[in-house]
Design a binder for these strands. Structure first.
Lengths: 227, 227
DNA sequence: CCGGCTCTTTGCGCTGGGGCAAACTCTGGG
DNA sequence: CCCAGAGTTTGCCCCAGCGCAAAGAGCCGG
């Protein structure tokens, strides 16, 4: 099963078996936490089922979602590579979720014995870094509507479900706001606008993308925002 | 000389010699570019002298500075680890600068033969990733004045010069604006405010921090912004 | 089928900070 | 020493988006 994890592509079957032996399953129900920001990074996780969001909370209590994790993806690994490190973010379950937890020391040992695996991890990290740099730029330079469009397009690609009408996403306005770095009010207004223009359908904790192409154009800034 | 590069801490003297042999020096004068965003990542660089900023430019021509590089630091390496990758940002010299350029393929070969080095690189990358995540959160949640304070404090630590009066930095208002994700007007207003409050001295492309502690408090949000 | 809870919508007012324009001030080159 | 050009300051206006408040809508358990 763990073979499907792209981070373990270069792990030998034996190493995977070791991981299974050394790791242990951890189930967390909706809204529960796998770990908290600034806790010592004791384990890295592979998500097996469900959905997890990585968040940072400001001293004032405001939440920012850094990314959402889908099945067969690694999380908590950034903290785990460094022996003395703490988690840079908290991991909260968006749905009931199940993950395989590997002690950081075992994880590091595995990486040390398998340079190909370490290289994979480096690639993953640099990819994520590229994404963060881009999103940072977007945050600085783009208008909210465009940012929300980007978020929706990105989420659709990662976690969208194909249904007859289009692509379905299950996120509340609040969720989207935390990802796009805005407020639920603004998200609500923007989504309403899109619905009026016939680009999407909305519902409680749900939206359906009818015209992915138009949304992508909005995200790219090549389509002017609502009148 | 290259021994001082923290990225090469685990390189053997012989490997360093190989790097010197395989690499070549590249001088770029002020405002010149080492490479551009989206170009194929042909070389990784180690800065030997000068200062370089990594920037992304939006289609509309707006600039965002991702980070500034000081001597003995690696840049362009994120692009170099992946054989098919392009640079995620442009590298522009803030002053006349000199760097040692290593072909990406040589760089990768070195990493493959020396897992300790690869591990160092991974640590550097994850550290930078942590920083980007933090700055992303700051960008989303914090007010401009606080963000500018953070930028100034951070730059003071990396590139500040001790002088009798305090810590001196050499950046134009425009530079600071691009780093803090705001406009030169706002930076100018905020700096003027700080000067009136006696926290800093300002000058053309220059500022002197008189009370680092007060600025740090501003950056942390524990000191209220200007009245 | 009801009641309550959570999520969503929308009107309204407000403000942080963006951006133009014009004046001012360094600084280095001739 | 003076001038031109680059960097800076500040007044002024404007608006995108925030956030309250109150009403509406969907969902679930009993």
């Amino acid at each position: 099963m763990l073979q499907r994890v792209e981070a373990l592509r270069h792990a030998s079957p034996e190493e995977v078996r070791t991981l299974v032996r050394l790791g242990l399953p951890r189930a967390v129900e909706e809204d529960g936490f796998f770990f908290f920001q600034d806790d010592p990074a004791e384990r890295a996780y592979i998500l097996l089922a469900g959905r997890v969001k990585m968040i940072q909370v400001t001293p004032a209590g405001q939440q920012v979602t850094l990314r959402t994790i889908g099945p067969y993806r690694l999380f908590g690994a950034i903290g785990a590579v460094n022996p003395t490190a703490t988690y840079p973010a908290s991991a909260q379950a968006l749905q009931d979720s199940l993950a395989w937890g590997i002690a950081s020391s075992d994880f590091r040992r595995l990486l040390q014995n398998n340079p190909a695996l370490l290289l994979d991890l480096t690639h993953m990290t640099t990819d994520y870094l590229r994404e963060m740099q881009e999103r940072y730029r977007e945050m600085v330079t783009e208008q909210v509507e465009q940012r929300i469009a980007r978020v929706v397009v990105r989420l659709a690609g990662q976690l969208g479900r194909r249904i007859p009408e289009g692509i379905e996403l299950t996120f509340s306005r609040q969720d989207l706001a935390e990802i796009a770095g805005t407020t639920l009010y603004t998200v609500s207004r923007v989504l309403s606008g899109w619905e009026k223009r016939g680009l999407i359908l909305t519902g409680r904790e749900r939206l359906v993308i009818l015209h992915p192409h138009a949304l992508a154009q909005l995200a790219a800034g090549s389509l002017p925002p609502a009148p």
